[in-house]
């Protein structure tokens, strides 16, 4: 080894901690993270599953001799859950892309790393692009962000509807637990009456008032409405004691969950009766 070679300070040849991002790489990043086709695909698939599930539910409702198949409903529910999760994962990537500390790299005008600029880069102590991305990604894994997924799934009306249907098939007489409430407070849900409060008989065509969410047998509440219309006040109070709402014809809608409760209850009941007879 010659003397002159020994004089070269080896420190100087080390790559700087901060490396400028090549503009082509930034473009590649933008392209792969900002993919508009993915949310569209998720949207289309969600709609398809929802339509298929709706058709299935409608079909079984129209054919009283059929039973709801839990595994079919569960698979609809699982598929939706996966799509909602994909949507959430994708929204995380979008959030990273849009984060100011990440997007700032796109506008940076920095010269490429050459031997000439090496020295100036040695003195920069900014975090690298990859470090920023990693930091953001780790941040997304924190519990604060996983709550975002729970919110997303709670907001998904049809997913919750499927969930409720599955619950009442398995527990026709139990109150649906309220996910928004403290789970510990929710251990003992009350029983749901499957009987019309006007006739005290089991429902066969239950309808629910949108205003107060009270359910009645259709023919019996119709009778109340006729009386209400003929009364002096021309209104029909909700027949439930202490309910301050009025009942309007236009507010009545078929209570699908109650129909499913009744059918599941009767099925479970007949099954136990069959067993009894066999024994």
């Amino acid at each position: 080894m010659s003397d002159s070679e020994e004089e070269v300070p080896t420190m100087e040849l080390k790559l700087p901690d901060y490396l400028p991002l090549k503009s082509e790489l930034m473009r590649d990043f933008e392209k792969s993270f900002h993919n508009r086709t993915i949310p569209d695909i998720i949207k289309v698939q969600t709609r398809q599953i929802q339509e298929a599930a709706e058709k299935y539910i409608q079909y079984v409702l129209e054919h009283p001799q059929l039973d709801f198949d839990e595994s079919i409903l569960s698979s609809f529910e699982k598929s939706l859950e996966n799509l909602i999760r994909s949507e959430f994962e994708f929204s995380k990537l979008e959030a990273i892309r849009k984060n100011p500390s990440v997007s700032a790299f796109a506008s940076r005008e920095e010269s490429d790393l050459t031997l000439d600029s090496l020295e100036s880069y040695q003195n920069i102590t900014k975090p690298n692009f990859s470090d920023v991305i990693e930091e953001q990604y780790l941040e997304m894994k924190s519990p604060k962000y996983s709550k975002g997924y729970k919110d997303l799934i709670h907001k998904h009306k049809f997913y919750n509807y499927l969930n409720d249907i599955l619950f009442v098939i398995r527990n026709p007489e139990d109150q649906i637990p309220d996910e928004n409430e403290d789970e510990e407070l929710n251990v003992s849900g009350g029983k749901i009456s499957l009987k019309d409060p006007l006739s005290l008989n089991y429902y066969s065509d239950p309808v629910r008032s949108k205003r107060c969410k009270h359910t009645f047998e259709r023919s019996n509440i119709e009778e109340q409405l006729k009386r209400g219309e003929a009364s002096r006040e021309r209104i029909t109070h909700c027949p439930i004691a202490a309910c301050s709402q009025v009942i309007n014809r236009a507010d009545l809608e078929a209570d699908v969950l109650m129909i499913i409760r009744i059918r599941s209850f009767q099925r479970l009941h007949n099954k136990t009766r069959d067993v009894d007879t066999v024994i």
Partner: peptide
């Protein structure tokens, strides 16, 4: 009042109540 149609009577009130 719960036995008065003009007041608090509601068809869902049971014999027990």
């Amino acid at each position: 009042s719960i036995l008065n149609e003009e007041q608090d009577w509601r068809p869902a009130i049971t014999l027990k109540q």
